[in-house]
Write a protein that binds this DNA or RNA. Structure first.
Lengths: 335, 335
DNA sequence: TTGAAAGCGCTAACAG
DNA sequence: CTGTTAGCGCTTTCAA
């Protein structure tokens, strides 16, 4: 399996011509082209992408950095990304940060060493220091952020309107006649969770209903304790009739807790989550939620990046509008 | 940000010496090493992996091919792989096949063009023609299969003992006093589903209980119809008291269907799935299942590949033993 | 312990 | 439309 040189020798044309055939850019006579292609097939020729990359400065590789690949939101995004970039002949390299700034910087570094043509990333929850990221933004390597962005100006990003999503969710509870609503909020250091909280508060105030916010972000690390404190809250506020959880997983835990406490959903309490995770349609009752259009987010980010690859465009931030997914957990049985 | 050459000029040593420093292989005097390292820091030097790859023939990239990244089983595996290989300084390129042979071959091709050092893959459900794969096995690029393997000899693979998993699941139902059990089987063209079916039948026969097998693989493409035919089966066989579903998602659908039919789980019918998906602990009742140790499978495959990278070893097939996860859906309320 | 030199496989001027 | 030529940045003999 020789290279371009062997084909040149076989066909009697020059290296350059052979190269042109494979980059079907230049004008090559149909005859020569055919001759070259035939020879290529004969020796089962496969272009050496590395060599081309080195010489041309284009690797045809796009780096993707996510907190965790085994998280349905991010894997849906990756799916979206993969679809559009592979259609354009790019490969994707994936790195995980596990929400650590250190790993994030390492990943970024690694991608630069690989000479990736562009980077798609969602920053880790922990990241506070943007110097490394700023360096890339200033560099020639295009980068676009999705879902979570650094608080820097002039960046390319595809985001979800979390405020709006929370607002919609909250209004939906109110529409379903809830008058005393609780928000289980996520880690306040993470901007998207803060936005959701703000959206909740805004909607509650707008419609003048009673509301309550409770931070409870550690469900994964410490489920026992969290569920106990949840129990306390529900006991202390028996008049709560609607709950908006900052995420679907938390919502499911709530659903089970409410069930344990013999509080019926949606009869006594209505419940809505956020994220429209794959399992939210499968619970009993099924869980109303806010869809994040994760796959679309991946596609749009990838498209934005590809666009920047062609010609450096002005920094653009695209904001997606989340959609309400009504299911049984917020059904108003009186209506 | 110059290259090795610039550092050589700055420090007054030769290119070769600088190169040696970064491959901390050769014997370089501590002084020179330090000098070089300092210069490198000064100009924020980043090695060009592509160039090194081209010259040395080692890309430090590993290709991973999976049917779908947004599938919790595969994304868990990817997580396991990523952990192992990134610790060893490798990057991973990910391609999806969407269960299409055509895409699989394209991905394989693409990886070879990139000169990946090794390949980790799970073949698509559709793949029947192994010529492309055989070519790679014969080539110098190490490849190891996980979860789904081609029916070829002398391959490296990390697999799950699906037969055993099904056997265990079935025995568990029988232990919980089920005497009339149903297996909802997956697509018979997929070997892992066939193995599960065989394990089920073997366990049922061994313990001399009544059993029934029903193929119902299209739950995703045609849920309505499938659920209806399920309903028919359950009505036709009202004495069924235990169900083993070939996958957790199917099991959840069953759970909901049984609920609709006012058949209580686990009181009247006990239900067990396969896969231990993330949502199976969250349902009401929680779903018993068979754990596939997906992350471990990823780690083992990656380790096997890395081992092969160092020195071509004899083809090895590792078979993991699945584990029973008991939850509420199979609880014996009489015991 | 270090240096000189060749070249990995390909692309991109430039000249014809 | 085609060929010549000069490298991309690095590794790796071979010699010193």
């Amino acid at each position: 399996m020789g290279g371009i040189k062997e084909i040149a020798k076989m066909t009697g044309v020059s290296l350059a011509t052979v190269s042109r055939v494979f980059n079907n850019s230049a004008l090559v006579s149909p005859k020569t082209r055919e001759k070259v292609l035939k020879a290529a097939k004969d020796i089962d020729y496969r272009p050496n992408v590395m060599a081309a990359a080195l010489r041309s400065g284009k690797s045809k590789i796009i780096g993707v950095i996510v907190p965790e690949v085994n998280n349905s939101f991010f894997s849906d995004i990756i799916n979206g990304i993969e679809g559009v970039v592979s259609d354009s002949g790019f490969n994707i390299i994936i790195s995980q940060t596990h929400e650590k700034q250190e790993r994030e910087n390492a990943a970024l570094n690694s991608l630069l060493e690989l000479n990736v043509d562009g980077i798609l990333m969602s920053i880790s929850k922990e990241t506070k220091d943007y110097t490394q990221i700023q360096k890339i933004i200033d560099s020639k390597t295009p980068i676009v952020f999705f879902d979570r962005r650094p608080t820097l100006d002039a960046i390319n990003a595809v985001l979800l309107n979390n405020y709006l999503g929370a607002y919609i969710a909250t209004e939906h509870l109110i529409d379903m006649d809830c008058e005393n609503i609780l928000h289980i909020a996520g880690n306040p250091d993470v901007s998207i969770f803060e936005e959701r909280k703000k959206g909740f508060v805004a909607a509650a105030q707008k419609h003048r209903v009673q509301y309550l916010v409770n931070h409870l972000p550690n469900i994964k690390s410490n489920p026992e304790e969290d569920l106990n404190s949840l129990k306390d809250i529900l006991k202390k506020h028996p008049n709560i009739d609607g709950i908006f959880a900052y995420g679907d997983e938390m919502a499911i835990h709530l659903l089970n807790l409410l069930n344990t406490l013999k509080i019926e959903v949606p009869k006594q309490v209505k419940l809505i989550g956020f994220g429209n995770a794959n399992f939210s349609a499968l619970t009993q009752p099924s869980l109303s939620s806010i869809d994040q259009e994760s796959s679309l987010m991946g596609e749009l980010s990838a498209n934005l990046l590809l666009q920047n690859l062609k010609r450096k465009t002005k920094p653009t931030a695209k904001v997606l509008s989340p959609k309400l997914i009504r299911r049984e957990s917020t059904k108003n049985l009186d209506q």
